[in-house]
Design a protein around this nucleic acid. Structure first.
Lengths: 174, 174
DNA sequence: GAAAGATTGTTGTTGACGACAACAATTGAT
DNA sequence: ATCAATTGTTGTCGTCAACAACAATCTTTC
């Protein structure tokens, strides 16, 4: 359809496009399968590689933990609370590098599912002491088993040694 | 404020929370600065490290290319088109791992700024042959210089050798 | 050559997520 | 006692991935 199917604001822009004056190899690549396309400067950019990897790894995490319906961020929150009971929301947010505004909704959903409880702090009436419920503790144990399975997928994908090398390189960010 | 400031749906949930029965070390961590908080199982998860790293690297990219107002995804699109003139939108989307629905808006903005032009394909009236405009070509050259500067920031952060090791490990995703 | 199915660009919606700005309650410092 | 800082919360905005639908067009099949 190209410019024909534009209906509203695109119609004007489409009219401007010169239908002539095409350069070099037009249509030559049009039927490409997606492979054998050069990335030029993109190869050699850490950000691009990391983005693609992060996409893959999150999709695998979500898929592996789909049965328990837990997303990576939720898992990280429960893990930190489980390892450090009584933390305030501010402390958790700072530690995980997420905003406290975002943590509010995360905890809302986790509290609705009875995994986490906000207990009024004894020393500071502004803050909550975060704890895992008994249900949350047993649930987290299962999450960790599934997460370990996901981690094995990663090792299969990039290699066992490469995975550990990666963790070592990026340790300064955790 | 804790449970006091809840107004609507949270008021009911707040009433349920037992203000007693707090376990272990309550308030002990409440004043933590954010450091010295154990991550437990989170350390050793590739996904967590990658997420933090990706966040850092994208922020640095955006900051480094703030003067030209180019985001990572826009840069990747222009780079691929520059290296492979005449590609269709489908081919670009497949190659970069972004959806063609998303690429539509990306190209809209790049076309508005006169960096990219959609030329009707000679062989397939459905598709567009994507090209950089002359303005887009000179602009991309500058973007690449700034991107190289960003890449130096990455090398400073994780080390020159580690960066290359990282690129090698994640090469299978690019 | 016509019908059926696949592809391409487009529009729209949904939800997760990061960033920011306000606000009330509370704490801490002066 | 007053003023600044902190904590949780609410809201908005923009980015992004994932889907679903659609019209135009190509390709395949009979």
């Amino acid at each position: 359809m190209a410019s024909k199917q534009k209906t509203s604001r695109k119609a004007a822009a489409a009219a401007i496009r010169r239908p002539r004056a095409r350069a070099a190899n037009d249509g030559a690549y049009a039927g490409d399968t997606g492979d054998d396309i050069g990335l030029d400067a993109l190869v050699g950019h850490a950000g691009y590689a990391v983005r693609r990897f992060q996409l893959w790894i999150f999709q695998d995490f979500i898929k592996t933990l789909a049965t328990v319906d837990i997303r990576p961020t939720q898992y990280s929150v429960m893990t930190v609370i489980g390892a450090n009971p009584g933390l305030s929301q501010m402390a958790v947010a700072k530690r995980l590098g997420i905003e406290r505004a975002r943590l509010v909704h995360l905890l809302d959903s986790l509290e609705e599912r009875d995994f986490v409880s906000r207990i009024p702090s004894a020393t500071d009436r502004r803050s909550h002491a975060l704890h895992l419920t008994t249900r949350g503790k047993t649930a987290l144990a299962q999450f960790k088993r599934l997460a370990a399975e996901h981690e094995r997928h990663v090792a299969e994908k990039i290699g066992k040694e490469n995975r550990e090398r990666l963790l070592q390189i990026l340790a300064c960010f955790t």
